[in-house]
């Protein structure tokens, strides 16, 4: 069985990746998973300078999902390169570094720090964290503004040679226009969806539960909306689409691939079941066997009419 898929110039061993912010650097999962069998580790987003993150509470459970407002807590790009790169390189897994910034300048400087000659395998541009605010765009987030998205991807494209993945927010009127803008800017792929903005309220105290008031909703609750967004983006762009949103089992991966995803990222499941990625990959292989699909990539976009 051939699980390989290609995005940009890189061939990945399998299409089941782990999403940024749900997997740390991977070290936290060594007791539970063979990191080698992760399609790609998308490390937690780094920014040019360290960020303290949001005041707690930062997470709360909701029906079949969870809200988070972590606020991109991280120690900064240079620290990641110095202290975490050696570990990431040793895993033998494909590594994607997720970066963010307050504005274009910060994104470009951050990209310049994280991109080495042959590492990482790709850089994911987090244009869509709902818990931060971007500058130089007419909306709160870069990925809510097609022109700003195109400008930003172009600027990073000019600076580094690495494959670029633009991670998009579903909190938009029309995600296809943003996906097309990322493609026009030179992105090698688009990844969607980041979390849906939401909030939780405590009726007893009459206060919002999260310290940041609002947060991003993830988990199985968002899967139907994510499938639709992936399908829409797939029909709008030629570059690969990476599907994200509430994947808990092998057939979820199949569903995203049928809607047009070349690969998927599993996120919230890692927080529930630290061995989740391995289980999902095995279940995905079982599906392929059961349906006599020889190549995983043959599923991409094969939704029947």
């Amino acid at each position: 069985m051939d699980l390989k898929i290609k995005i940009g110039r890189t061939t990945y061993d399998n299409p089941v990746w782990v999403a940024s912010g749900t997997f740390g650097s991977g070290k936290e999962f060594e007791d539970f998973l063979e990191l080698k069998k992760v399609g790609a580790i998308v490390a937690k987003t780094v920014t040019l300078n360290a960020r303290e993150g949001n005041p707690p509470p930062r997470t709360v459970e909701t029906p079949s999902g969870m809200l988070n407002a972590i606020g991109l807590e991280n120690k900064g790009a240079a620290e990641l390169v110095a202290n975490t790169y050696p570990f990431l390189k040793r895993t033998g897994t494909k590594i994607v570094i997720s970066i963010s910034g307050a504005n274009k300048k910060e994104f470009v400087e951050c990209a310049d720090i994280v991109a080495e000659k042959n590492f990482p395998h790709a850089v994911e541009l987090n244009l869509s964290c709902p818990n931060v605010e971007h500058g130089g765009t007419k909306h709160r987030l870069i990925a809510q503004d097609a022109a700003a998205t195109e400008r930003l991807v172009k600027a990073v494209r000019r600076k580094i040679k690495c494959d670029l993945i633009a991670k998009l927010t579903p909190n938009v009127t029309d995600i296809t226009s943003i996906a097309m803008a990322a493609e026009a800017g030179g992105a090698d792929a688009v990844a969607l969806v980041n979390t849906y903005m939401g909030m939780a309220v405590d009726a007893e105290t009459r206060k919002p539960v999260l310290g940041n008031i609002a947060g991003g909703l993830s988990g199985p609750a968002i899967k139907p909306m994510a499938l639709k967004a992936v399908r829409d983006a797939y029909l709008a762009v030629k570059i690969p689409v990476i599907g994200i949103g509430g994947i808990m089992k092998g057939t979820d991966v199949v569903e995203f691939m049928l809607c047009g995803a070349t690969a998927v990222q599993v996120g919230t499941v890692n927080l529930v079941d630290p061995a989740g990625q391995g289980r999902i990959l095995r279940e995905f292989e079982t599906y392929l066997k059961r349906h006599r699909v020889k190549k995983a990539k043959d599923l991409i976009g094969k939704l029947k009419g």
């Binding site: 912010g21 749900t22 740390g24 937690k44 930062r58 997470t59 988070n68 807590e73 539960v209 927080l271």
Partner: peptide
């Protein structure tokens, strides 16, 4: 309030 319990999500 906790999610992963293993230091990955930085929620707690």
């Amino acid at each position: 309030y906790m999610a992963c319990g293993i230091g990955a999500c930085r929620g707690c």
